[in-house]
Measured scan of single mutants.
Amino acid sequence: MEVVDPQQLGMFTEGELMSVGMDTFIHRIDSTEVIYQPRRKRAKLIGKYLMGDLLGEGSYGKVKEVLDSETLCRRAVKILKKKKLRRIPNGEANVKKEIQLLRRLRHKNVIQLVDVLYNEEKQKMYMVMEYCVCGMQEMLDSVPEKRFPVCQAHGYFCQLIDGLEYLHSQGIVHKDIKPGNLLLTTGGTLKISDLGVAEALHPFAADDTCRTSQGSPAFQPPEIANGLDTFSGFKVDIWSAGVTLYNITTGLYPFEGDNIYKLFENIGKGSYAIPGDCGPPLSDLLKGMLEYEPAKRFSIRQIRQHSWFRKKHPPAEAPVPIPPSPDTKDRWRSMTVVPYLEDLHGADEDEDLFDIEDDIIYTQDFTVPGQVPEEEASHNGQRRGLPKAVCMNGTEAAQLSTKSRAEGRAPNPARKACSASSKIRRLSACKQQ
């Protein structure tokens, strides 16, 4: 084909351009004929944790799935940006308080904090938690009735009371019990989460009196709706648990309003109706937990002794299953770290194939690490110290990083047969305790 000078094309009309061969290198194709290559998922490591896909996002930050490269346990990490926390009232204080509380709590029905990582340079905090497959609110939203069968609701409620009793025994008032803060594992274990607005009572406090509340409006008791200066913290949790039980068994809320002012007005009056299909035992329990006067409201001991709580409820309806993943529609909620794991395991070791967030990740503290002497050669063979940054567990980050890069360049065919977990650990520049 004859090559045409581009400067001469402006002298031709459209018809003349076609005659000189423009149609031979300008093609129009339908979008259905285009085959897009999927974007390669680059592996990203935060300390010893391999990052997966997004699980959810809230006002405080994002939650992603991660894999512990040492234990191969599935975890969830809450990623918090200090810049964003400053824009939220009491944001930083709530996060630090939640970390302090979770560090000393150990119960099967309370979410466990596994690790805390802090990135000084990017001003990011990573709260590594045990993995929960789904939230209770997500399960309720997945069915038209917006409720659980009585047998399933009873099982979840009993676990909620177990976890709540443990928190109260530790002198902690949750203040925000609701389905949105109750998570579930694949085995059906309920976990109380989000202790950001919780309050730890003084060890020598005479009672459970509280003065502040930041919980969700629909789950607040009349004493808070009416603006009382002080109130019983434990009875606030009992009320919120009662509203939660009402919601998961009926699909409704005892109090509603077009806006928060109308909602608080209705809560302050204390008038509500219980659907007739709840039955006398459940209705009596709800009335005891939603008692207007805090002094007359049920205690956890009274809830445990109630006939509806103690009764064994046979399954009359099919239980609400864990819904498919909202993004991938995966009904099994498979591990989202698998594509990243395959990338590390299947590809040659190259620095361009993975990302390490930083050479140094500070753990379990908000301060910069200490310094240790770096050896410097002298005339008599002895070495003197220069400062060298280290990880919180004493690992020399720069030395590990250099060693990792040197190993990656060394030709050794046997290394390709290593397991995925050992490869992740070798790529991680800074081991965590």
Rank of each mutant, 00 (worst) to 15 (best):
I267S: 08
R147P: 01
V116L: 07
E57T: 15
T212C: 10
T395Q: 12
H379G: 07
K78D: 00
C391F: 05
T249I: 03
D355E: 06
A295W: 10
P339A: 06
L101W: 00
P203L: 09
T395R: 14
D358I: 07
L386P: 03
F354S: 10
E374Y: 09
N247R: 05
K82T: 14
D68G: 07
N119T: 11
R425A: 14
H345C: 08
K287Q: 08
A429L: 12
T13G: 01
D352R: 15
A429E: 13
L341V: 10
L50D: 11
K175F: 06
I172A: 06
V128L: 05
A198G: 09
A295I: 10
D162A: 04
P221G: 06
Y118A: 03
D284M: 08
M139I: 06
G180Q: 15
L17M: 05
K41D: 11
L17H: 13
R211V: 10
Q152L: 01
C132Y: 03
P222R: 05
Y131D: 01
I303M: 02
L263E: 06
D30Y: 00
N181W: 00
L252I: 13
E14A: 05
P294D: 03
A398S: 08
S299W: 09
P413K: 13
L252V: 10
I111G: 02
I172W: 02
N90S: 08
Q382Y: 09
G21R: 08
C73W: 02
I303Q: 14
I88V: 04
R211A: 09
P217S: 02
L167P: 01
G276C: 08
P275S: 05
P281C: 03
S271F: 06
K287L: 04
A406T: 11
E65Y: 06
I177Y: 01
G394L: 14
E376Y: 14
D115V: 09
A318M: 03
P222F: 02
Y118P: 10
Y156F: 09
T395Y: 12
S378I: 09
D327P: 14
T230E: 15
H379M: 13
G270V: 09
W239C: 01
L184Q: 05
M22C: 08
L9W: 12
D284A: 03
N412K: 04
V3W: 05
P373R: 04
A406Y: 06
A206P: 09
T212Q: 15
K84T: 03
K44F: 10
I192Y: 07
E293G: 02
V63G: 03
V236C: 12
I361A: 12
H306C: 05
G227Y: 12
E396R: 13
L400R: 11
S419V: 05
K81G: 06
T363C: 10
D343T: 13
Q399R: 04
C158I: 13
D355L: 14
Q399M: 03
M289A: 01
I99M: 06
L386G: 08
D68Q: 05
I424G: 03
M392S: 13
L263Q: 01
V197M: 00
G385N: 14
Q305A: 10
Y362H: 12
H202N: 01
E130G: 02
D355G: 15
G288E: 12
H379P: 12
L285W: 00
V116C: 02
Q371H: 07
F204V: 09
H154L: 01
R28C: 04
R405G: 12
N94V: 03
K122W: 11
I424D: 13
K423N: 13
P149V: 03
A406Q: 14
P280W: 03
Y261I: 15
R304L: 06
E374W: 13
